[in-house]
Structure formats: C-alpha cells, structure tokens
Amino acid sequence: MQQKVPRRTRERILDLSLQLFNEFGEPNITTTVIADQMGISPGNLYYHFRNKDDIVNSIFVQFEGEISHMLAVPDSRHPTIEDVWHYLHLMFELVWRYRFFYRDLSDLLSRNRKVEVDVKNILAHKNHVARHLCIGLRNDQALEADDLEIDALATNMVVVATYWLSYEYVNNPRKYSEQQASADALVRGCYQVLSLIRPYLRGETQVRFDKLAADYRKKLT
C-alpha cells in the first residue's frame, strides 16, 4: 500500500491554531498553548512563524483564497433565487469554518493592519456580489427595486451575514460550538439574510422563495 505523505509541521500548526481560535477565541490562545498542543517546543513553532499575528495572517490568506473563489458569480446567465440561496449557504459554511475572525473581528481589526485592510476589501466584494445578484433578479423582473433600494438591500444582507455568528454567540455562548447548535445557527442566518429580500420579490420567484423558506423553517422545528 502507498504510504501517506506526512503533513508538514507548518500546515499542522495552522490547522491546530484555527481549531483552537475557533473553540476558545483568538485572544485566549497564545503561541505557548499552540506549541504545547502540538507537542513541539516554542522554538520549533517560531521557526515556522515569527509570532501569533504571523499565524493569524497566514490563516487569513487561506480564508481570502477560499472566499475569493466562492464570491465569483457566473456571467453566462442571470442569477436565480436558488443561486442566491446556494451562495448564502456556502458563505455561512465558510464563515463557520473561520468563525473566530467574525467573533473576534473588532479586536483583530484594532491591532492587525493587514486584517483591517483585507476585511474591508472582502466586505466590498461581498456587497458587490449581493448587488449583482439583486440586479440580475431585477433584470429578469423577479425583483422590484430601484438602485437606491438595491444598494441598501445589498448592504443590509452583508451586515447581517457578517455579524450573525456574533449575535448567535451572545444569545447562547455555552452551546456555540456544539455541532447541532452550529448547524441550526447557519440555517437561521441564511434564512434571516434571505428574509430581507422577500418583500422585493415578484411572480414565480416569490413562490419559489416561499417554498424554499418553508423547507428551511422545517429544519428548525
């Protein structure tokens, strides 16, 4: 049998750090804790990363790569309400995978210039995609809203999606990381964002939306 190639120490450090940051919060985890959990010396860890910010920035590079790929919307056709739903579902799954960024966002922005600049770019990209999806629906007469309403709608969708996990954490911090609780939180977040678009939908798209919404509500009962 072909033997698996051992994962590099640098990759293992990043994976473990992401797990610890997500579970306990990035401010509560030091490089000493990471090295101890890895079973390596602090010197070995510093061989790969200068400090904790270096680890955070490296994880953020991974996150940027994944979210940039996910935020690419097809230009070959107009989006449908199912596309919006699917896009949001994938977005919330990615947000959950890197949830410490969102839960500790204010603290990270206050002391990490790179994260501050890159988060602004990501939010602008999210807003662009949300606006693009809404305009596509409007072009197909599936959504009725003027440009100002679409700008406000896109911004509201991004705001709710960005801070939803913080809201969930404040509501129930003791169950925040439990598997079922996290799955329900993602469903609620996706539904909450999409509920913003419901008043603007028209015709068959509104009917399809209501069916999708009913299916999602069943998952929460």
Results as ranks from 00 to 15, higher is better:
153 L>S: 00
136 G>M: 07
158 V>A: 05
145 A>C: 13
151 D>F: 04
150 I>A: 12
161 A>R: 02
167 Y>N: 08
134 C>L: 13
138 R>W: 00
164 W>V: 05
135 I>F: 00
165 L>V: 00
159 V>G: 01
151 D>Q: 15
137 L>H: 05
139 N>Y: 06
145 A>V: 15
148 L>M: 12
144 E>W: 08
144 E>F: 05
158 V>D: 04
142 A>Y: 11
147 D>L: 10
167 Y>P: 00
159 V>L: 10
148 L>R: 06
154 A>S: 11
163 Y>I: 12
156 N>V: 04
139 N>I: 09
152 A>C: 13
141 Q>K: 14
143 L>W: 03
151 D>K: 03
163 Y>Q: 14
137 L>K: 11
162 T>R: 04
150 I>E: 03
141 Q>V: 14
160 V>T: 09
148 L>A: 09
143 L>G: 07
150 I>D: 02
166 S>E: 02
158 V>T: 03
151 D>G: 02
134 C>R: 03
150 I>V: 14
142 A>P: 00
156 N>C: 11
163 Y>F: 11
143 L>I: 13
142 A>F: 01
151 D>W: 10
167 Y>L: 14
162 T>G: 04
133 L>W: 01
136 G>Y: 10
158 V>I: 00
137 L>P: 10
135 I>V: 08
139 N>F: 07
141 Q>M: 15
167 Y>H: 06
159 V>A: 02
155 T>N: 12
164 W>Q: 06
143 L>V: 07
145 A>F: 03
154 A>D: 10
133 L>C: 09
135 I>Q: 02
160 V>H: 01
135 I>S: 01
147 D>A: 11
163 Y>A: 08
159 V>Y: 00
142 A>V: 02
146 D>M: 07
155 T>L: 14
146 D>Q: 03
153 L>T: 09
137 L>A: 12
150 I>H: 08
149 E>R: 11
139 N>G: 13
157 M>A: 06
149 E>L: 13
147 D>K: 03
162 T>S: 14
157 M>E: 12
142 A>M: 09
142 A>W: 00
146 D>A: 08
139 N>V: 02
154 A>N: 01
138 R>A: 14
149 E>A: 12
146 D>F: 11
158 V>C: 10
138 R>I: 07
161 A>D: 01
153 L>A: 03
156 N>K: 13
166 S>W: 05
165 L>E: 03
155 T>S: 13
163 Y>T: 12
160 V>D: 01
166 S>T: 09
150 I>N: 10
136 G>F: 13
141 Q>G: 11
148 L>I: 04
144 E>C: 04
133 L>D: 07
163 Y>R: 08
141 Q>D: 15
145 A>D: 12
135 I>M: 05
139 N>D: 14
138 R>Y: 01
162 T>C: 04
157 M>R: 00
165 L>W: 00
140 D>I: 08
145 A>R: 09
166 S>C: 04
148 L>C: 09
